[in-house]
Design a protein around this nucleic acid. Structure first.
Lengths: 110, 110
DNA sequence: GCCGAATGCCTAGATTGTCTACAATAGTAG
DNA sequence: CTACTATTGTAGACAATCTAGGCATTCGGC
């Protein structure tokens, strides 16, 4: 139940994370807050999705991490986009647009 | 590999099927052809996704089926939207728009 | 000095949707 | 009767996400 928002997150989470990091280094918790805010509370990334995604992205070399201190003074792991990540983001963005426009095409059929 | 288009299909397949059926009864094979055409070859629904989706939708009462004869003269199972399905389509369409606009919001951040 | 709330990281396990890759049937043309 | 194509169907694998927790640290209120 409650299958409204989060269920569509599929396939876009990585892109959203990359995009969020493209605007500056952030730690995991911060990424999820940022995504929520920037989407005006529509998109919610829960932690069970977030951290596995971060490791996935780091494994693939799209982001890199470093321990630091959060603005709140806590220990936190900061993630930053790599050059490869930037390219991947552009690519994912391109195919997202292609896809969403195609869906829109179909929805507007009559 | 080849994870460009189809990977994003997630979560929208049901909606696309419902929408396609909203324009008229169709059989499974026809639905997938129609989706491909209407999306200008961007969206491809392969059979291993299509039929399970159709059963899922029928189970949930969103569509109903009936055997008939295809335009090519072959036996084919025609699916049609039910009243419940129409409502579900409207709802899914609403939340798709909400979602895709939220993604777009994030992608346009700078 | 204690307690609860918030910040922040992390993981196991189940669920689910999709994909790959086949198998089966039925018409039609030659 | 063979070959082809339209069409339905299924088994099994895989990958992403969700649920549902656990742990450590800091801060504020009492």
């Amino acid at each position: 139940m409650a299958r409204s928002k989060a269920d569509l997150l599929q396939g876009t989470l990585d892109m959203l994370i990359l995009k969020t990091l493209a605007l500056g280094k952030l730690h995991g918790w911060g990424i999820s807050k940022r995504i929520r805010q920037n989407s005006r509370d529509v998109l919610e990334v829960n932690q069970g999705s977030l951290y596995p995604a971060l490791y996935r992205l780091e494994d693939r070399g799209l982001i890199e991490s470093e321990w630091g201190i959060s603005p709140e003074g806590r220990r936190a792991k900061f993630y930053a986009l790599t050059a490869v990540g930037k390219r991947a983001l552009r690519e994912e963005q391109r195919s997202w647009r292609l896809f969403s426009e195609a869906v829109e095409l179909i929805l507007q059929m009559s």
